[in-house]
């Protein structure tokens, strides 16, 4: 049997909101260590990787070595509309069951339950090695969200140029070109901090459609971390409630290459 209780149900709601437009069906891989999910978008350009450690849950129980729960994202997000922002969520599935039961509770006054039919999903797992990035940028989620949204008005691609001292986001579109520079700002108020760590400068192009999609996970944490390498996909990482110990929602995006 699998049973997990999360007192802050909105965390799960935010996770599903963050990935629903990239993947239609996903597998929840449950084990005694927590919940993992890996899914690619249909064009194999981006990948979602979720890790929820048991620390994020008030109660966590998985009797088997592993269980795979296939979820349709549209149905899950529909179900989470039932979940109020202050509700706790309990997920429950029998070992050979065909459903995942969600219970949303606010105190004892209001209890909603929904049994979701599970799906059998063929998923391709990619091996993603632990990568040391040449450049790491930590910036406020609100800033990331704003940059991606504003830049999408001018073009389809955004160049991220990370150098010692700061990071430049630029777009070159039909109406003209623009750029936004964020200075390495370690000594300001936490919520405004921008940390740019550079071993070697990197400049890469990415599709704004995907970067904007990742921004939908912004409510999950205060800061987002970008990892850039000249020869591997971009990593966009949101730590759950800004605590890596609880887990993270990561997105990987293949860069564009100039002809």
């Amino acid at each position: 049997m699998f049973e997990a209780v999360l007192s802050n149900g909105s965390t799960l709601k935010k996770i599903f909101e963050g990935i629903k437009d990239l993947c239609t069906d996903v597998n929840f891989d449950v084990s005694s260590e927590g919940i993992k999910l890996q899914a690619m978008d249909s064009s194999h350009v981006s990948l979602v990787s979720l890790e929820l450690h048991t620390d994020v849950f008030e109660q966590f129980r998985c009797d088997r070595d592993s269980m795979t729960l296939g979820l349709n994202m549209k149905s899950v997000t529909q179900i989470f509309k039932i979940c109020g922002n202050d509700d706790s969520v309990t997920m429950r599935a029998e070992d050979e069951g065909e459903t995942l039961e969600f219970t949303f509770e606010k105190g004892e006054d209001r209890v909603s339950t929904f049994e979701l039919k599970l799906m059998d999903i063929d998923s391709e797992h990619l091996g993603i090695p632990d990568t040391e990035y040449q450049c790491n940028v930590k910036l406020p989620c609100s800033e990331y969200q704003r940059i991606c949204r504003d830049m999408a008005g001018f073009g389809d691609n955004m160049t991220i140029d990370c150098q010692k001292g700061g990071v430049t986001f630029s777009v070159d579109g039909e109406v003209g070109k623009g750029k936004i520079f964020l200075k390495h700002q370690p000594n300001v108020e936490e919520k405004h901090k921008v940390i740019v760590t550079v071993k070697e400068g990197v400049e890469l192009d990415f599709a704004l459609r995907y970067l904007n999609n990742f921004a939908k996970a912004a409510p999950l944490s205060d800061h987002v971390q970008l990892g850039l390498n000249s020869d591997t996909p971009l990593s966009v990482r949101f730590d759950i409630e800004d605590k890596a110990t609880l887990g993270s929602l990561k997105f990987f995006l293949a860069p564009k290459i100039k002809e």
């Binding site: 350009v45 797992h125 990619l126 993603i128 599709a207 990987f252 860069p255």
Partner: peptide, 14 residues
């Protein structure tokens, strides 16, 4: 126009 790379270029299936 730059060409969109795909993740299969970088990672292998496991």
């Amino acid at each position: 126009t730059p060409i969109q790379n795909n993740l299969d270029e970088f990672y292998t299936l496991v």
